[in-house]
């Protein structure tokens, strides 16, 4: 009887898994953008997107593994099939839409913000630091301020601290804990700037089936409110929800 049971569950798993029965879905992330995604002290991927991704995989009945990669090559590596999704705080933009497919957003259009050492830091004519290759870097280049680009988000913050730049421009949710824990050293400057169309999971154009599954799973999480709970858990009560 026991053997029979095991056999039945195995068949069920096979049927429901269909195309992905043998294939695990590899989730690609950067692992350097807390609280969205980071490597925790055990050396594992952790953060909002880890928890979200695991929940989505559960709802879509997929087996998922996590892979980290450099931000610079995160899209080419998806294109050549080294992993199947990008879930790395990547904003949905027109440029990216041309080469990728996005699911519906799992995070509302995020505000970007300037942070500096004083509230009157010059953000229109001064020097502003941003991470290279982000939508924020593009925005600064167009804003008239002098753009100073660094390879990692960490370095952009360090640049303001040591006076290289007047302000740093990044996702507000990334800057919020830094500002609040700096003991008054950092402060937000000026108005928040809404950029991009929210954050979605990036997939290859041809992976329509997989995109459908994630879309449905995100929708179900939006409907039953678990997504909002998760956002509040990681980003605090003031964070924008759906």
């Amino acid at each position: 009887m026991k053997n029979l049971l095991i056999a039945t569950t195995a068949t069920l798993a096979l049927v429901s898994g269909a195309a992905f029965a043998q294939q695990t879905v590899r989730m690609g992330t950067e692992g350097a953008y807390p609280p969205y995604n980071f490597i925790n002290d055990q050396g594992e991927v952790d953060g909002f997107e880890r928890e979200l991704g695991d929940e989505l995989c559960k709802r879509a009945e997929l087996t998922c593994t996590w892979v980290t990669t450099d931000w610079d090559s995160i899209i080419p590596n998806l294109q050549s099939g080294n992993y199947d999704t990008i879930i790395a705080g990547m904003s949905i933009t027109d440029e990216r839409e041309e080469v990728l497919d996005f699911t519906q957003n799992y995070f509302p259009p995020a505000a970007s913000a300037y942070a500096g050492l004083s509230a009157d830091a010059d953000i229109t004519g001064g020097v502003v630091a941003a991470q290279v290759g982000t939508i924020q870097a593009g925005h600064v280049a167009e804003s008239g301020a002098t753009l100073l680009e660094y390879a990692t988000p960490d370095e952009t913050v360090a640049a303001v601290r040591n006076g290289e730049a007047d302000a740093v421009f990044a996702d507000k949710d990334f800057l919020a804990p830094i500002v609040s824990e700096s003991g008054g050293e950092f402060t937000f400057v000026g108005e928040d700037v809404p950029l991009g169309g929210g954050i979605g999971i990036g997939l290859r154009d041809s992976d329509d089936e997989l995109r459908g599954k994630f879309d449905a799973a995100i929708q179900s999480m939006k409907d039953d409110g678990t997504l909002n709970t998760m956002i509040t858990k990681w980003f605090g009560a003031e964070a924008k929800t759906f």
Binding site: T146, L147, L148, E149, A159
Partner: peptide, 8 residues
């Protein structure tokens, strides 16, 4: 690595 790019 190291030095930031100034004004692109």
């Amino acid at each position: 690595s190291g030095f930031p790019a100034f004004q692109q």
